[in-house]
Design a protein around this nucleic acid. Structure first.
Lengths: 159, 159
DNA sequence: CACAATTATGGTTACAGTCAACTATTGTCT
DNA sequence: AGACAATAGTTGACTGTAACCATAATTGTG
């Protein structure tokens, strides 16, 4: 047994970025495959996931949340809306902005997607114990929380 | 302290894949920026990094190591060779295969790149202590080690 | 009215991923 | 030896997507 009987399996000093990328890609391809059964892409699932907790936020806030370009957010919402999973409605005070809400259908799709994503996560992190997975997620969240955002779409921090 | 005085900073239940992606992207853009001073891209740096420890491996082994398509490896090596950072030479026993070696110039570029990448890593993981960074890297490596490789470029395991 | 903010549209670049076809070399079989 | 298959690499095309940027349309603000 063992899937790595390779003789010259040198460590190959790797940096965090490379490890993150390879584990992400392993997760990404599997997630994309699993989500296709729900009719979603990883990007749409990520947005739906945000909408699950930030329901009613406007596009600007959503794009800042997900750290993507506002124009990319337009496309994502278009697709969600086209699939009947989310809806746009004008914000009462400011009719320039669109509040995005998740539909009941969208919430059902979200639940199914979450289960699918959880299964993939189980598989990808199968080498870690439950405690270690929590530790990993905790470390990732904390690292992310203290990373300043240099890109143009910085959130609305500051005055 | 805390760089997040935002009022509505809800948790937003995130999955490992999404966390990995966002932290990777933060690292990737900064690494790409830092490496441009050395004249390298993150992909070329990753290959050079592998060559640093797997010097003399043939392209097939390298592409399996990095989990990329053999045809993509051709392009990467072309660029490294064009920049004088690596060289191809026929394998003595099997003249179909090319052993790839790193040149002295390539090793110098690798050292500079490593320092640049280490600085980026310091910045990206600034929210974690040294012990936590090691823990994170260890967890990532172990998770990666137990992820089966479903893609087509599986290594030469099995008959 | 001048100007900023929010969203929408479109175009451009770049790159990863996939795939098929092709050359050159090696190994196998009779 | 010759026919044939397998291996290693190369090339090129194609797809999809991310990222970037400029600009317009609408609405709000001073």
């Amino acid at each position: 047994m063992s899937t790595k009987p390779a003789p010259n399996e040198a460590p190959v000093a790797e940096f965090a970025g490379q490890l993150l990328f390879r584990l992400w890609r392993a997760s990404h391809t599997r997630t994309a495959d699993a989500l296709s059964a729900v009719g979603l892409t990883p990007a749409l699932f990520a947005l739906l996931n945000v909408l699950g907790t930030r329901d009613g936020a406007i596009q600007q806030e959503l794009s800042a949340d997900m750290a993507i370009d506002p124009s990319a957010m337009v496309t994502l919402i278009d697709e969600l809306e086209g699939a009947g999973l989310a809806e746009r409605r004008r914000r009462p005070n400011d009719r320039r902005a669109w509040e995005v809400t998740i539909t009941p259908k969208g919430r059902r799709a979200l639940e199914r997607s979450r289960r699918a994503a959880a299964e993939v996560e189980d598989e990808v992190l199968s080498g870690l114990t439950a405690a270690e997975r929590n530790e990993l997620l905790s470390l990732l969240r904390r690292a992310l929380g203290s990373v300043p955002a240099p890109p143009p779409w910085r959130s609305e921090e500051e005055d």
